[in-house]
Design a protein around this nucleic acid. Sequence first.
DNA 1: TGGCAGGGGCCTG
DNA 2: CAGGCCCCTGCC
Length: 328
Amino acid sequence: MVESRVSAAVKELRQFNLRQIAQSGQCFRMTEIPMTEIPRAEAAVKRVPAAEVPGSDFMAYRVISGFRFLTVVQSGETVIFFCGEEELPYWENYFDLQTDYGKFVESVDKKDVYLQKAAAFGSGIRILRQDLWEMIITFIISQQKTIPAIRALVEALCLKYGSRMELPAEFVPGERDGAFYYAFPTPEQLSCATLEELQWLKLGYRAKYIYQICRDVCSGELDLEKLKTYDYPTAFAYLQRFYGIGEKVANCVCLFGLHQIDAFPVDTWIHKVLMERYACRCRRSTLAGVPQARLCDFLVKKYFSGYKGYAGVMQQYIFYYERYAVPR
DNA sequence: TGGCAGGGGCCTG
DNA sequence: CAGGCCCCTGCC
């Protein structure tokens, strides 16, 4: 049995906020550790030399990505990662710590007051570098589903088809006594599911998409390793050849699974913003010449091409701002 | 209470 | 393009 040593890595991070990341709609296995269990997490933090005593803004989350597990806490700019020593580089990369998000926020067009507000409001968001396979399945599930429903379905898949993983006892500030979790199923594991089983999980019409994608990945028809080498336009086009993956899902997979942060998924929220806040900035005569179906693409190109190479970061600021700041 | 609209869409005809 | 699709939740 491999007994991995748990380390507590203390970092001072700017443009980093666990709650904003967890709620930004890009990851569905990052969950807040309940208030009742937070004292235990705090106790763990206090054992850590150099860590600040948690303030009133104390946050504690657990994250599962692929087969890995992390407990992470934050107070102010102090962030502590609890994980196996050898896994720390994975999580540093996962949270995209080497990237300076301050320069993204500062680059927002000073004349775009709306985007200024959105970026300021969500400035702690990171574009996570998540597992490609997990993102493909997760965003196929996401279509026509609410975030709580997506979380529930992902958990159901992990419980039924993923490996049960043990956690070292000391590891678990805030975890319940049964120290285990379920990894996201590998393509081989998930391909054991029959179409009927997937339908029983209430995946609805998505069941047949997942069933087919499992087969495509296992046969090598959908080559994940090759996909990782593609540039954004190539990856975007490649993904859409597969059953159940359209524009929106392909863009989400590019943004969250391939870290092609130029990808700009247009969902109903972004669609609403483009129509209500950006379309009105165009001359009527300009809009008249644009086919209805391409209007969104046109607006994205017109107003976000200035953020070449990282427009997806702006997309996340807008999504988060619309969901959590704009009163509805 | 029940009916309807909509959810980070996509496929088929 | 328009419709259908699975199923749930929120709303009136």
